[in-house]
Structure formats: structure tokens, C-alpha cells
Design a protein around this nucleic acid. Structure first.
Lengths: 209, 209
DNA sequence: CAGTGTTTGAAACAAGCGTTTAAATTTACG
DNA sequence: CGTAAATTTAAACGCTTGTTTCAAACACTG
């Protein structure tokens, strides 16, 4: 049978990466948390870079087909959805990541934020390759949905939206804890994502300057 | 007279920090770009941490009084502004940073994004101390302006907005270059900020979920 | 059960980092 | 002009990083 060293490393790594970022998490910290030898990361994954990608891959392999599926369903029911309806197709796929790993949704969105935020060239490339098809489809649809913007305006809006999503997700854990303490709200990633969808959709739909 | 070594270091540092982030910019890279000795950073600033803060301080000392001033002017003219009018008070102060240094506005917002994004505890603290008063005032006003949200909802919206702003600004340079190439738009930080204000205001004003 | 290929272990490696040292040089001032 | 202070210099320090090495332990197969 396959050793579970690989999984122990992946599990420890994703937790530490989500919490402290990729650059600020050393292989020594990971292997110590995973209770495995330092050298096993390079043995099983080749390098730290490839470990980072493997951590993300576990989630992307579930998320991407799921988004694709939800897009198909949504378009079958409704040929011309609103912006918010389109954005909402992302919610279920994201929540399905809780079946990949305990607390998977929150962990993944944090990792996504880190990946987008930290200046790791290889990650941007890796994401593009893996997101590629599905994200391209999503972008294609959104162009038909968001009303009356020039190409340049839409370009900026989309990147604002991407920024909002990624950044908020990266800090979601910390913010959730503050919100829980100050407003007696349970931290519920589903709830946060829905608030985020509302906010982003309104921003996308704003009249052009 | 004061040596210009300090300024050469600050100028080189802010450029490299904005481009590569704080953690990924070494003192050796800074002193090499500034054409000064490695040890002069510690001689003039004490440590890398304090250098980072000094770089930001140059801008904050101009920005914060300016925002305070604009808020006062705006409230005198209009006791109950719209969300967009409130957000617009930030535009001129930000653009005034171009008088601090060439390309100062773009550089500062990038630095701000880095500071907010990188997990440098001391920076978050430093910002809070320096932003403190003015930002507190801004937050106080926004509560009266944004319509009909619960305290918890407003909390989330504000952090979404903060995230949108900071993240977009951090990537504004790169995105600007793409936009310029693809849409024959000149990269104009003023224009981007105005688009951003429109987007954020619409998001803040969205009806509650 | 012997032998082969896979996995683990402890240790070392080379490179880069921020910081410190102490001597050399420049600057300022009585 | 001479001396004291401020600044610059080159070198080294101690530490952490990702990666490599190679022998020991293990797992599986013929």
C-alpha cells in the first residue's frame, strides 16, 4: 500500500501554508508538524515548489469540474442570468471542497488568496494552466451578463472583482474570528461567500464612469 | 548638511519594495541599487523593519492630513453625502502623493497593498498607529452613509471594500500595462482610482442579503 | 527466506539573509 | 590647522533556508 507520509505532508503543509503563507512556511516546520523526516518532502514531491502545487491540485481537481458542471446546469435553466446568478454558481462548488478535507472550503480560499497575493511566478502560471478552460468559460459568460461596459471597463471591473474575492478569502479566517467575537456571529464560510457574492455583483453591475 | 545616503536608500527601497514586496527585497539589493554600503541601512535606519516604516512614513505624513482636510471640506458642503461622494474624498489626497515623489501615488498604493497583504505584524501595527485618527474618522462617517446594514454586515462590507482597494492597487501597475497594451488606454492612476471608487461604492450600497 | 527496490533517517551542504564590528575615511568646527 | 564626531567601508558573524547525500530500515516479490 502507498505510504501515508505523502498525505501527512500534504495535510500539514496546507494548514501551515494557509495560516502563514508559502514563503513564511519552512519545510522544517511542515515536516515537524507532519512528524516525518525533513528529506521526505524532496523525496516525495521533488521540491517545495512542487509541494505547493500538489497542495492546490487536490482542491482544483474537485473544484474545476464542479464549476464547469454548475455553469452547464445554470445555462440550461436560464440562458441570460443576472450577474449575481452567475456569481452564485461558484458557491456550491466552493462549498463542495469541505468534502475534500475538513474545513476544506475555508482552507482552499485562503490558499488561493495566498497564491494570488504572494509573488510566486510559478503559482500564477500553475493556476492559469489548471484554471484555464473553466475560468475561460466563466469569463466568456460574464461578458454577456454584465451590462453596458466598454471592453476596457469590463477588464478593470473583473480584476476588481477578482481582487475582492481573493483578498477577502485570504483574510476570511481572521475576519471571521473578529466578527464572531464582536457580533456573536458564528463563523460560517457559506454566509461570508454569499455576502461576498452580493457585494461583488453590485460592483460589477454599477453604471460605467 | 544632511547626507543624501538616507534618501538614496529610501528611494531605492520604495521602488524595490513596491515591485517585489518587503520580504523578497533584500538589503543587499537595496544598497546595491542605491549605490551605498550594505551597512548604511542599519546605520541610518537601525533595521530593515524601521526602513520599511520610514518608506511608508514619507507618504503617510502627507496623505493623512490631506484626507482629514478633504473630509472637513466635504462635510461642510454636504452634511449627508452619498457613499460615492465620501469615497471620492480619498481621490485628491492620493493624487497629491505625486508631489512627494515622481509616480508617488502608484508607488504608495502598491506599498499599501504589500503592507496589508504580507504577514508582517509590525506593519499592521505601524499602520494602525499612523492611520489611527483619520481612518477612525472616515469609518465613523461611513457608518452614517451606507444605508440599512446591520453592524455585522457593515463590518464585512468595509473589509470587502478595503480588500478591493488594497488588492487592486497592489496590482494596478501590472494591470495598467496589460490594459494599455490591449485597449490602447494610457495608464492613468487617476482614472483607475475613479473606476475603483465607482465599483466599491456600488458594492457598499448593495442591499443586505 | 533471500534479495531487490522503496522509503526513512541523521547529517551535512551551499547559499542567502539581517546584523555587527572595527578600521578607514570624510566632514564639521573651535 | 588639528581634533573630534559622523559617516562609509570591507569583512565577518550567526542563523535559517531548500536541497543533497548515503547508510539504515522497511516492504515486497520470486
Amino acid at each position: 500500500m502507498a505510504s501515508n507520509t505523502k498525505e501527512q505532508i500534504l495535510n500539514a503543509a496546507e494548514m501551515l501554508f494557509a495560516e502563514h503563507g508559502f514563503a513564511d512556511t519552512s519545510l522544517r516546520a511542515i515536516t515537524q508538524a507532519a512528524k516525518v523526516n525533513l528529506a521526505s518532502v524532496n523525496y516525495h514531491f521533488g521540491s517545495k515548489k512542487l509541494l505547493i502545487q500538489a497542495v492546490l491540485q487536490r482542491y482544483l481537481d474537485v473544484l474545476m469540474p464542479e464549476i464547469d458542471h454548475q455553469l452547464t446546469i445554470m445555462l440550461e435553466k436560464n440562458e441570460s442570468p443576472t450577474t449575481e446568478q452567475l456569481m452564485t454558481t461558484l458557491v456550491d462548488p466552493l462549498l463542495s471542497l469541505n468534502r475534500v478535507r475538513p474545513n476544506g472550503t475555508a482552507t482552499f480560499v485562503q490558499l488561493l488568496g495566498r497564491g494570488y497575493t504572494e509573488t510566486q511566478g510559478h503559482l500564477r502560471r500553475f493556476m492559469t494552466v489548471n484554471f484555464g478552460d473553466v475560468l475561460g468559460r466563466f469569463m466568456g459568460i460574464i461578458q454577456d451578463v454584465v451590462p453596458g461596459l466598454s471592453a476596457a471597463d469590463l477588464f478593470w471591473r473583473l480584476h476588481f472583482a477578482m481582487g475582492t474575492f481573493v483578498f477577502s478569502m485570504a483574510s476570511s479566517q481572521a475576519l471571521g474570528e473578529i466578527a464572531a467575537a464582536d457580533y456573536q456571529e458564528d463563523f460560517d464560510i457559506k454566509n461570508v461567500i454569499e455576502k461576498l457574492v452580493r457585494y461583488i455583483s453590485a460592483g460589477l453591475d454599477a453604471p460605467a464612469n
